[in-house]
Write a protein that binds this DNA or RNA. Structure first.
Length: 825
RNA sequence: GGGCGAGUGGCGGAAUGGUAUACGCGCACGACUUAAAAUCGUGUGCCGAAAGGCUUGAGGGUUCGAGUCCCUCCUCGCCCACCA
């Protein structure tokens, strides 16, 4: 037990009872939404890294509150999802039960760390009153044509036995369990995030976010300006009537005369076959083999493979007949699933051509001459072997050749639609019903999807039933599919018996909109109140992990833009300011249960108290910087707070005493620096300044009241408990704790202001350099002239010595007012 | 392979182009103590007895002056990766 546990318990209760941290969501005058990414309640509880982030966010929020803002700092749990379910499976406790256990532990820890949370507005994504509205979001997406079903090759995790979004596949592996991802052909629900590609990109310019996160999003959206070209096809048996040509996307139409073959993806080939294209057994074998390997490739290591099915295309530039190959190095999901191959100027095509002995024709040359190419030449140059374009600059040739070949400009995105379905148990059931009768008669809520109906709003939520065997099936269906009672439903349109969708939605749908719900957690009629959203959103400050750059942060921006389009909000970016916190590692590795290096904060908080730990974690490094966790310096912070506690013994007898000019100057400089440092999330230097100020105040024989008052307020965001305790003792407003009111809290006091006049120096240290090296530091008056400074310098013994040793007189002097004088000899 | 970021004492780290190493840890010595802990004080980049010299991953450049700006390279971290 730390010496502070008694006062911590006392204030925690008093704050909660008085609602010190509960802004009036309807009437607040200066709303400030201070948000941190809500945690998913893992079984291990919070680890020291998340505690550092949470207390770091809170220091900022407390500072903003003292600056007179109505700060809203909500908290909740992102408890639905595969991760929580996997843990439940492992220990054999039902996820709904485990959720309650984790919830208790998390809230205990979150109370312990001393954050100014608005507890009344807490939420959990697995509670029906929350996921009712997650389902509502899905229904709206369907109604507005942004949710659709499609059969396509999707990422399948064989270990989690579910499909995953592209964003959840890391280098061909499952983000959660690192199993190799397979491709499965399944019909699934998708959200049309690609409709928003351009706006998601453009919106980045108007928000204040960590630059690296913006770059990551930009790269993920992957806008590429290029050209689309048509290659006439010849020789597809049975397909002459329909497949006259093939479209390709390229950024290098300048190399068109160097196209010596075409390559299509195995997926595209398969679609052609499904449409009636006749191919040999070998070709079919290759396609099947390539598709089974998809997602299971070791990047960059494997040799190129492919097969020639015997068909040809015509190069539109020179009318040459070129072969069409099938190879797995062509991605189906990017561009058109087909590429024009220019082996001379693309390293992948080069490799392929070498392997299968295909023609390599150089058409771009750095010097206008022909070369014996050992590798692809990918830089710009001058065109050769390109008929009338010979001698043209390759950049200039792009648009000219495109015109010549009858192509067009085309913009392509890497971003793909968001796969929402999960064949798992622990999530919100997708609120859709499929009716065979409507399907047969071509009826449905949306013309293009006959048979599909959304669950009427009055019937939401579609409650997740309690089922004993919630294990994932591996059949491409959720375990809910086995529950007849659940899957049977009446068609909302024709009232006949119909089938309920049994997949659940991706966890990331739960977290796309939680910051809206915080504003109105008790609302039974709407997902959130429009007026509150207008008042509080967009979020003023959002802090979280950079690992969500292309997941949560991108999805939330997408949903917000959709809400904007549906006119339920009046802004289209959810987070005005976002800062990514640094990652705290342990012994050089990310903290994880499998590595056994998770640092549990409980013991530290118990031994040292919340204030000491908050300051220790904030003092380690700037919030945006990570690092290896060590507990080396905690004793230093402990000492610091003990010294703070002793300060009151020095308090002056009356309030009349003041500080000396120098101490007053340091006090005001500290107010300025600490405020600026907190604003920049540089808590480490703010704390360092508090330490410097404390040392100064300790030296005084008698401590003036106003300086003590200011010191406690500057300390308050960092050490909320101790500062409150000391301030109540000190403040005349205080009175006994039993009659304590919200208004008495130091945390609602105004942040101290500095007087710019008081921080002005009259004297400064004039640095004298000789040839750029410091040779003297002289005490001088602010505003000293260059001439006077030079005179002072020339009288200085050590300066004289250096000048005479260099046997010269200053040729030139550089004078930086109130800073330095450099004598150049 | 591509993108982003970072390399400063024994350690965490500090420095609007202007005294590099603030603040804290650790360490050493001293005071207090019978003793220890705690506390307080002093010192603490490296070489050197000193004078002085050297020092921000390596090398070059710009500048009167570079940890900071530019170029090349090395190392580490994170993200992405056959994206045409």
């Amino acid at each position: 037990m730390s010496a502070y546990s008694k006062i911590e318990n006392k204030w925690r209760k008093l704050w909660l009872k008085a609602g010190v941290y509960e802004p009036d969501l309807k009437k607040a005058k200066k709303p400030f939404y201070n948000l941190m990414m809500f945690p998913y309640p893992s079984a291990e509880g919070l680890h020291i890294g998340s505690v550092r982030t949470f207390t770091g966010v809170d220091i900022y929020g407390r500072f903003k509150r003292m600056q007179g803002n109505d700060v809203f700092e909500p908290i909740g749990l992102d408890g639905f999802g595969i991760n929580s379910e996997n843990f439940a499976l492992k220990i054999g406790v039902h996820p709904s039960r485990q959720a309650k256990i984790s919830e208790k532990n998390f809230y205990r820890q979150l109370e312990m760390i001393g954050n100014s949370f608005a507890w009344r507005e807490k939420l959990e994504t697995y509670e029906p009153e929350y996921y009712k509205w997650t389902q509502w979001v899905f229904v709206q997406m369907f109604k507005k044509g942004l949710a659709y079903r499609k059969r396509s090759p999707v990422n399948w995790c064989p270990s989690c036995r579910t499909v995953l979004a592209d964003e959840q596949v890391i280098s061909g592996e499952c983000e959660r369990c690192s199993a190799k991802i397979e491709k499965k052909d399944l019909e699934q629900w998708f959200f049309k995030i690609t409709n928003y590609a351009e706006r998601l990109l453009a919106g980045l310019d108007k928000i204040n976010w960590t630059e690296s996160v913006k770059t990551t999003q930009k790269n993920w959206i992957g806008r590429s300006e290029g050209y689309s070209l048509k290659f006439p096809l010849i020789g597809i048996p049975g397909e002459e009537d329909r497949k006259h040509s093939i479209d390709i996307f390229t950024t290098r139409p300048d190399t068109l005369f160097g196209v010596t073959f075409i390559v299509i993806s195995p997926e595209l080939a398969k679609r052609w076959i499904n449409d009636g294209w006749q191919v040999s057994g070998d070709v079919k074998k290759y396609i099947a083999h390539a598709l089974s390997l998809r997602g299971n490739i070791k990047r960059g290591e494997e040799e190129k493979s492919g097969v020639f099915p015997g068909i040809h295309a015509i190069n539109p530039a020179n009318q040459e007949k070129i072969p069409v190959w099938i190879s797995d190095y062509v991605l189906d999901a990017y561009g058109t699933g087909a590429v024009m191959a220019v082996p001379a100027h693309d390293s992948r095509d080069f490799e392929f051509a070498k392997k299968f002995n295909l023609t390599i024709r150089e058409v771009i040359s750095p010097d206008g001459r022909d070369h014996d190419l050992r590798a692809a030449y990918t830089d710009p140059g001058v065109l050769i072997n390109s008929a009338k374009f010979n001698g043209t600059n390759s950049e200039k040739a792009k648009i000219e050749i495109t015109k010549f070949a009858g192509g067009d400009r085309k913009i392509n995105y890497r971003l793909r639609d968001w796969l929402i379905s999960r064949q798992r148990y622990w999530g919100p059931p997708i609120p859709m019903i499929f009716c065979d009768f409507c399907h047969k008669s071509g009826k449905g809520e949306r013309k293009e999807m006959p048979g599909w109906h959304s669950v009427p709003e009055k019937n939401l939520p579609v409650k997740l039933p309690f089922i004993k065997d919630y294990r994932p099936q591996g059949t491409g269906e959720s375990p809910l599919a086995k529950e007849r009672k659940f899957s049977k439903a009446r068609c909302p349109m024709c009232k006949n018996w119909a089938r309920r969708e049994t997949d659940v939605s991706d966890t990331f749908l739960d977290s796309t909109w939680y910051f809206f719900r915080y504003l109105d957690t008790k609302n039974k009629n709407k997902p959130f109140d429009k007026q509150s959203a207008k008042k509080w959103l967009p979020v003023n400050m959002y802090i979280g992990g950079a690992e969500h750059s292309v997941l949560h942060l991108l999805y939330s921006r997408f949903i917000t833009k959709a809400f904007f389009d549906w006119k339920i909000i009046n802004f289209d970016e959810p987070f005005k300011k976002f800062r990514a916190h640094g990652l705290i590692i342990k012994d050089g590795a990310k903290m994880s249960k499998s590595k056994g290096n998770i640092v549990n904060p409980d013991g530290y908080f118990k031994d040292f108290g919340a204030d000491v730990m908050r300051i220790y974690l904030a003092f380690m490094a700037p919030l945006e910087q990570g690092g290896d966790f060590r507990d080396q310096g905690i004793s230093g912070i402990d000492r610091f707070l003990v010294r703070v506690g002793k300060l009151k013994a020095k308090l002056a007898k009356t309030s009349k005493e003041g500080l000396s000019e120098n101490s007053e100057k340091l006090l005001h400089k500290s107010i300025k620096k600490i405020g600026e440092d907190i604003e920049n999330l540089h808590y480490n230097t703010a704390i360092s300044q508090l330490m410097i100020l404390l040392s100064e105040l300790e030296k005084l024989a008698s401590l003036p009241w106003h300086s003590y008052d200011i010191f406690l307020k500057l300390l308050a965001p960092f050490a909320p408990y101790l500062s409150e305790e000391l301030w109540q003792e000190f403040s005349a407003k205080g009175g006994p704790a039993s009659g304590w009111k919200k208004q008495n809290s130091i945390h609602l006091e105004p942040w101290p202001k500095f007087d710019p006049k008081k921080i002005k120096d009259e004297r400064f240290k004039l640095i004298i350099q000789v040839n750029g090296k410091v040779r003297a530091v002289l005490d001088a008056t602010i505003g000293i002239s260059e001439k006077a400074a030079l005179e002072m310098a020339m009288e200085d013994e050590s300066v004289k010595k250096y000048i005479s040793s260099l046997a010269g007189s200053p040729k030139k002097t550089i004078f930086v007012p109130d800073k330095l004088l450099n004598l150049v000899i």
